[in-house]
């Protein structure tokens, strides 16, 4: 089974963060949420592996006390 990589894996993380933020420039709250959802589906398709996707779904649902 493939495993979800949770180690740092993004080259130049500050550049990525800035690019992600700028993608939201000029969008209102609903548009931003739509954008994020589309982005999520695009990335999920790129990952493809069902085991990895299940682990990612679990990782994102943090239990906040």
């Amino acid at each position: 089974m493939a495993f979800l990589n949770t180690k740092p894996n993004i080259d130049r993380p500050d550049d990525f963060y800035a690019e992600l933020l700028s993608a939201h420039d000029g969008l209102n709250s609903d548009e931003s949420q739509d954008y994020n959802t589309r982005l999520l589906l695009i990335l999920a398709n790129h990952v493809g592996d069902r085991d990895v996707l299940s682990q990612a779904l679990a990782a994102a649902s943090q239990k906040r006390e």
Binding site: N5, T6, P13, Y17
Partner: peptide, 9 residues
């Protein structure tokens, strides 16, 4: 907190 990948961000 739980995932190292997020720390450089």
């Amino acid at each position: 907190k739980d995932y190292e990948f997020a720390r450089p961000l």
